[in-house]
């Protein structure tokens, strides 16, 4: 099997400005922030980002990397609203496609199945149709009389997800409470990249865990990055919880351009990893 291990800079070197990028996780939970940090360091711009949004969206908004956001919400969970995302929206700097969070799943699912659309009730009667005038409805061809929303596929150029363990071939394991939609992001993407807390031998993956925890299969994965603490400051339970103090500093950095500059500089140095020693790596139950 091919060894797909690479570094975060090598992942970002495969991305291009203007690409549509899917980011896994949910809110401020298990976000691939080590990879996002690498995007912040890069020259990439004009990205279309598809996300169940958390600080990934806020960081990329504040750094001016996003041209268009495809989303259902942006939240930091313990802080209900992300101030960087709000600032970007309120200044009109970013374009958006706002969908019901189930529609977003349907769009990724359709793309992963190579279908042009999937029908749903979600969105009908709401202003989701007003603000996305390209959306169309489709009549039940079997005569049931229902006119449903045809959620278009959301194909991704690339997907970035962070999971707990992976092998060098790209089989990736979720040990947390919920895989969220990480496998769909990978399935919808032309190029999918997985970062993980630890790369382990394949046999090690199921020594203590059910095979059902192997939620991303290598056939969908182009690159694997070992990034201990790679979801910090979002939660990566059971390996580590959200770093609430750090998240608050992140949110507070929206108060002024100077505050953002200071946070941005410190964030790019990777300082965050050293603030919560021992929150990842050896000694954690697998």
């Amino acid at each position: 099997m091919a060894d797909k291990t690479m570094t975060a800079p090598e992942v970002v070197a495969r991305l291009r400005s203007g690409m549509t990028l899917g980011i896994g996780g949910w809110g401020s939970r298990r976000k691939p922030l080590a990879l996002v940090r690498e995007i912040l360091r890069s020259d990439l711009r004009d990205l279309t980002v598809v996300s169940y949004g958390g600080p990934d969206v806020g960081l990329l908004c504040a750094a001016g990397k996003i041209r268009k956001l495809v989303f259902g919400f942006v939240s930091l969970d313990s802080i209900p609203l992300d101030p960087h995302f709000r600032a970007a929206r309120q200044s009109g700097r970013i374009e958006v496609a706002e969908y019901d969070e189930g529609m977003l799943q349907w769009g990724l699912y359709a793309a992963s199945l190579r279908l042009p659309f999937l029908p749903t009730r979600a969105g009908l009667g709401s202003d989701v149709l007003t603000v996305n005038p390209e959306l169309r409805t489709v009549a039940d061809p079997y005569g049931g009389g229902e006119e449903l929303l045809a959620m278009p596929a959301l194909p991704l150029d690339a997907a970035l997800v962070h999971l707990h363990r992976a092998d060098t071939a790209g089989n990736a394991q979720c040990l947390g409470p919920d895989p969220y939609f990480d496998d769909l992001f990978c399935g919808a993407a032309e190029h999918a990249f997985v970062s993980c807390e630890r790369i382990v031998p394949t046999a090690r993956l199921t020594e203590d865990a059910h095979p059902a925890t192997l939620v991303v299969r290598r056939l969908a994965v182009e690159g694997v990055v070992e990034a201990p603490g790679g979801a910090h400051f979002t939660s990566c339970a059971p390996d580590y919880p959200r770093d609430e103090a750090y998240q608050k500093e992140y949110a507070d950095a929206a108060r002024s351009p100077a505050a953002w500059e200071a946070f941005h500089h410190r964030y790019l140095t990777g300082d965050g990893h050293h603030r919560t020693p021992g929150h990842h790596g050896e000694g954690q139950p697998v």
């Binding site: 989303f71 609203l81 995302f85 709000r86 309120q90 979600a122 969105g123 709401s126």
Partner: peptide
């Protein structure tokens, strides 16, 4: 360019239809 950006539509459209 909203005066106040809130969380987003979340699941409200689908919830109310379903």
């Amino acid at each position: 360019a909203p005066e106040v950006q809130l969380v987003g539509v979340r699941g409200a459209p689908g919830n109310t239809l379903c």
